[in-house]
Design a protein around this nucleic acid. Sequence first.
DNA 1: TTGTACGCGTTATCAA
DNA 2: TTGATAACGCGTACAA
Lengths: 330, 330
Amino acid sequence: MATIHEVAARAGVSTATVSRALNGKSTVDPELATRVAAAARELDYRPNAVARNLRRQATTVWALIISDIENPFFTAVARGVEDVAQAAGHSVVLCNSDEDLDKEARYLQVAVAERVAGVVLSPTTVDTDIGPLVEHGIPVVAIDRPLRGISTVLVGSRTGARDATTHLIAAGYRRIGCITGPQRVSTAEQRVDGYAEALRASGRRLNHRLVRHADFKVSGGRRAAERLLDASRPPDALFVANSLMAIGALQALAARGLRAGRDVGMVAFDDAPWTQLVDPPITVVAQPAYAIGEAAGRLLADGGAPRTVTLDAELIIRASSRGASGHQQS
Amino acid sequence: MATIHEVAARAGVSTATVSRALNGKSTVDPELATRVAAAARELDYRPNAVARNLRRQATTVWALIISDIENPFFTAVARGVEDVAQAAGHSVVLCNSDEDLDKEARYLQVAVAERVAGVVLSPTTVDTDIGPLVEHGIPVVAIDRPLRGISTVLVGSRTGARDATTHLIAAGYRRIGCITGPQRVSTAEQRVDGYAEALRASGRRLNHRLVRHADFKVSGGRRAAERLLDASRPPDALFVANSLMAIGALQALAARGLRAGRDVGMVAFDDAPWTQLVDPPITVVAQPAYAIGEAAGRLLADGGAPRTVTLDAELIIRASSRGASGHQQS
DNA sequence: TTGTACGCGTTATCAA
DNA sequence: TTGATAACGCGTACAA
């Protein structure tokens, strides 16, 4: 674990010269520079970033705190953030809050303690407290879910949900169930809102028994679908708020010998690759996940006053919502 | 950005006492301890982990460097590592090397520079150089792919591939194609080896035109499948070395009006949830991803001499390999 | 152009 | 039990 002192000794110069030479600073005699480089190589010298960060009062690391690492939406976001970070000379470390307020708080603590250069965060709930970050002057960008006072990258969740539901209504479905995410998670709420708005626009009333909150994961989606399907008056179509819960819903359908698109209509958020492989293919609301990450990275890199960027989700119509004309429930 | 000095001043004690009180050290007057706690709270004091790490010459962070964040196998591994880390009092930061030797090298540099407490790594290739890590005394555990001289957690890839191929042979398939990962990636090589071994065991010769190396991603799997399917004598079954490439292969089949399990047999590595949702469901070789992460975390936490742990993959037979009796190629 | 010396914020040692 | 002080490794004024 060679230090700058050992390099200096070996090169026969002062530590200051080593520092200047290795950081390509203005004025260093080429002769000395090569001697320093040689000594550093020979000793396999690696500058101690901890000491450097302390001295510089700054780090080069961005923390990306996402709410579910197993959700393909967030991993795609991560790639977008990472590509921008690389270009801006930052490293990205990814933390998985697992939709858990405590875990999230711990990682935010770590981010402050380590004095990271910036944070991109998908808040687990609206209660997420970024006070410590802002008080310590660490720039934060929220993604997917808004947070007051800071830059945010959002998706038109409500519009996407409304379009999806309107599409199901137009296809002839009469009892459309909704499986959304946890209470207090803004995207979950917005997707219900959009669903409700579409129902109202077609002159229907919102039936609360057809709306279920789950955990945005496979198992929760499955349980929610089971409850809906096993009710006395089951839905003839499902609007599902993300792709993991859609898997669960399809499992529940399969267990009952039902098929999405033939027996029950379906639209799901997120254009996961497998949605085109099931038969019939699933109609989806595609979110521009990579672009969200890119936008968040740029907002973080640019600094400046808080801005909110909203990207559009796109309804991609496939066969799972092809229509209920042949088998409507009475 | 309050420092320990300001807390000390406010509490009317020395910085040493603040440090002792806040770290719950042995002997601190309860009266002073409460005064320190109050001052820290009032100033919203957050210990600077950078300074602490420098002084302690140690950090509490583990780096987990995986080769593809969009591969569900690795995200499941990550959850296993993380759960062990939490229990051992470590934070985990995740880095995505993207199967790119340069990116991987950069993250390894960062890990050394930041003096992390440990590294869990899925090496992109056998050329991965962990010399810097070991020279600086940073413990490293390799997962999924072996690295000499350090603890490693592996899966019985060759056995799994052999079992899968043997199963396809027994089901009556005559021309079994193989889509594996990149050259020089050990799991990719082992899965071809297992495939070849099964062919030999049944008295067949390995046909190199039926083996394709791809990138372990969707697009590569699709292109590989396209070449195999568009050949003059296409295969009647496919053995695919991970779930992302399986998606690509299924896309290629669908584009040609073919269906896995009806027109072409298929077995794929990794028990992704969607494999049960396609019709017919896909036969898979399930890897214990979460357990791999757990084992790696324990090896890292325990320290000790290098050990290699090998976990078994399990063949889960579903309908996509139900047999070729009805439509063998001549 | 180079070297000396200080300070970043914390913890550990030592003496009181 | 507490406080003064040194030290972790580096970067940078400042002086030479």
